[in-house]
Design a protein around this nucleic acid. Structure first.
Length: 255
DNA sequence: CCCTGATTCGC
DNA sequence: GCGAATCAGG
C-alpha cells in the first residue's frame, strides 16, 4: 500500500484531530500503526502528547543507544512549544439532525444509500456474513472518551448488553484540539467518530463537506448495516469478479 | 498485560 | 521514503 495524496491527507487530518495512530492505521487500511507514525513524522506532523519523556535527553539517548548504537548526541533543549487548544468553544453538533443527504457524489467514494429515518436501526438478523467475505477491516476498538454527539439518526443506540448506567453526570465536552471547521454543522466529523457510529467516509478528506456516515454501526463492525454491505462483499469466482474494490479512503480520486 | 508515540535503521 | 523492531511511559 502506498501513500497516495488522499491517504496522506487523511493521515494529516486524523492525526491533527487527535486520533491515535492505531485508529488512523485502521481507517486507512493496509498499513500498520508504526507506518502511520513513521509517515506522520516524515511529514513533520509531530507534537502530540507522547508517553515518552520529552525531557531528560540523556536518558533517552542512553536508552536509544542501548537498543542500537546511536551516534547522535542530543542537542540539549529545544524550547517547549505549548500546545494550544482553541479558545473558542467547540461547535458541537446541533440537537436536531437532518438525515444525511447525498452531499458529495463521487465515482470513487461510497455513496449514501437512499435512507429512511433511523426508526428501526437494528434488525438483528441481517446477515451479510461469514462465508467468503473479504475482510477490509474488522476489529472493534475500545471506546475512547470522545465527545458523544448525535448522529444523523438523531441519537445513538446501544446494544442491550452494553448499556452503561449514566454513572457519570455529564461527560465534559472536550475542546476541539485543533482546526475545527465550522461549516460541518450537520455532518459527522472526524472528531465525533467513536466505536459505535458508522465510519464510512463520504466525500474526500480535506474537502469541505467531507464527513462520515454516522449511523449506528452494525454491531461488531466499523460500519452501519448499509455500508457493511458495501465493505464486505461476497467473493465472486475470480473470473467474473468486479474490478472495483470498495475500499473507503482508498481510491485515487479522478479529477 | 494492554495501550500510546518516538526512534532507529535495514531495506 | 518506507515501516518493522524496539524503546519507554501510562
Amino acid at each position: 500500500m502506498s501513500w497516495t495524496d488522499e491517504r496522506i491527507e487523511t493521515l494529516k487530518t486524523m492525526w491533527e484531530a487527535g486520533q491515535t495512530a492505531s485508529q488512523i492505521a485502521e481507517a486507512l487500511g493496509g498499513v500498520s500503526r508504526n507506518a502511520v507514525i513513521g509517515k506522520a513524522h516524515r511529514l513533520e506532523l509531530q507534537a502530540r502528547p507522547s508517553p515518552v519523556k520529552p525531557n531528560d535527553p540523556e536518558a533517552k539517548a542512553a536508552a536509544a543507544t542501548a537498543a542500537a548504537a546511536t551516534p547522535a548526541p542530543p542537542v540539549a533543549a529545544a524550547a517547549e512549544e505549548p500546545v494550544f487548544v482553541s479558545p473558542e468553544p467547540a461547535p458541537t453538533a446541533p440537537p436536531v439532525v437532518a438525515p444525511p443527504s447525498a452531499a458529495a457524489k463521487s465515482p470513487v467514494a461510497p455513496e449514501p444509500v437512499a435512507d429512511e429515518p433511523a426508526e428501526h436501526a437494528d434488525d438483528p438478523e441481517e446477515d451479510e456474513d461469514e462465508d467468503d467475505v473479504t475482510p477490509v477491516a474488522a476489529p472493534v476498538r475500545a471506546p475512547q472518551p470522545i465527545l458523544r454527539s448525535v448522529g444523523p439518526g438523531g441519537f445513538l443506540r446501544q446494544a442491550p448488553g452494553e448499556q452503561q448506567p449514566p454513572s457519570t453526570p455529564a461527560p465534559p465536552r472536550r475542546l476541539v484540539p485543533a482546526k475545527p471547521s465550522a461549516e460541518m454543522a450537520n455532518k459527522t466529523s472526524l472528531l465525533e467518530l467513536n466505536d459505535r457510529i458508522c465510519k464510512w467516509p463520504l466525500g474526500h478528506p480535506g474537502e469541505p463537506d467531507f464527513h462520515f456516515c454516522g449511523k449506528a454501526v452494525n454491531p461488531g463492525f466499523p460500519y452501519c448495516v448499509d455500508h457493511c454491505g458495501h465493505a464486505y462483499q461476497a467473493q465472486l469466482p475470480r473470473r467474473d469478479r468486479r474490478p472495483t474494490p470498495p475500499l473507503p479512503f482508498g481510491g485515487p480520486r479522478p479529477r
